[in-house]
């Protein structure tokens, strides 16, 4: 039997996926948008439809503004640091060195660990190890647990995210470096181009596809940071490290602000959507060039 020229069996093949995506992905999406326009607290029987009121409230909610500014600051720092560190590491790991393979697998190792475990281990390091170093070196800021310091806690989380988060970008940059034709670099060398010129004029253009991927990947990781914060600070001290993800979770499950939390979700969605549209535009452009 055929439907529109396609055997029925093909339709049956796709049935489980269609049902699963509809029930467990699309339905919650639409449901979330609907509830963001109500005042439901998550447990009461009655609630009202209030239109866009939750969305207007967001602009005067200090907690959300604080959370947005933490998340954006964290993301900017993370993106810059990840790109800088992983690009340098990739160049080094791709150069003529001994133990190349072993070194690469050591540098990739942190990616396979769970974010929660890594966060917990570093909790202890910040609590027990760093203060000792701080005291020895006589650096005031490091002499106590930086996670307990509202202005330094963000750097604590950043350090952990970098420890684990530069591995994959390094691997992606190495893949990019391997696409650079050796002959081109040789020719440039003969023509008298120095190392810096060779990097900026020849190597770097080949790294742009990897760079785009790393940028988007890290950006999304930054904007949705959750596990590290739950493992390390729970959003504290005070509200200093309360990311958007953590705020959504807390609003919904411990503060009876169900519909309001879905509003924040929709805002996060819009932020990521803008990023994604830019991503597609940039990718399409770089594909044309390549």
């Amino acid at each position: 039997m055929k439907i529109k020229g396609v055997p029925l069996i093909y339709y049956l093949f796709t049935l489980p996926a269609l049902i699963l995506m509809t029930v467990f992905f699309m339905y919650p999406m639409v449901d979330g948008i609907y509830y963001s326009m109500t005042n439901w607290n998550g447990i009461s029987k009655a609630f009202d439809f209030i239109g866009f009121q939750n969305y207007f409230k967001v602009f005067s909610d200090h907690r959300i503004i604080n959370s947005l500014s933490f998340t954006v600051t964290y993301t900017i720092l993370l993106v810059i640091a990840v790109i800088a560190i992983s690009m340098v590491l990739a160049l080094m790991l791709n150069s003529n060195i001994v133990f190349k393979k072993t070194l690469r697998s050591i540098f990739l190792f942190p990616t396979i660990l769970s974010l929660i475990t890594v966060g917990m281990v570093f909790n202890q390091i910040f609590y027990r190890v760093i203060p000792v170093i701080g005291k020895v070196l006589n650096i005031e800021a490091l002499s106590s647990n930086i996670l307990a310091n509202p202005s330094l806690a963000i750097y604590g989380i950043l350090i952990v995210a970098l420890w684990q988060g530069v591995a994959l970008p390094t691997l992606l940059f190495i893949a990019g470096l391997q696409s650079v034709p050796e002959s081109l670099l040789e020719a440039a060398k003969i023509d008298g181009a120095n190392a810096l010129q060779r990097f900026t004029k020849i190597t770097f253009p080949y790294l742009i596809p990897s760079l785009t991927i790393v940028f988007i990947l890290t950006l999304k990781n930054g904007l949705t940071v959750f596990d590290y914060i739950m493992a390390m600070t729970s959003g504290g001290p005070g509200k200093a490290t309360e990311s958007i993800g953590v705020l959504i979770y807390k609003y919904a499950f411990s503060e009876l602000k169900y519909s309001y939390s879905t509003t924040v979700s929709v805002i996060l969605f819009l932020m990521i959507m803008i990023v994604s549209v830019i991503q597609m535009k940039v990718l399409r452009k770089s594909e044309v060039e390549a």
Partner: peptide
């Protein structure tokens, strides 16, 4: 259509649906 319907999820972070999903 189905291909788009499934892969559009690439652009939607899990945190966006986690609250209504838990309710469901």
């Amino acid at each position: 259509f189905l291909f788009g319907y499934i892969t559009i999820g690439i652009f939607i972070p899990f945190q966006v649906i986690m609250i209504p999903l838990t309710k469901l």
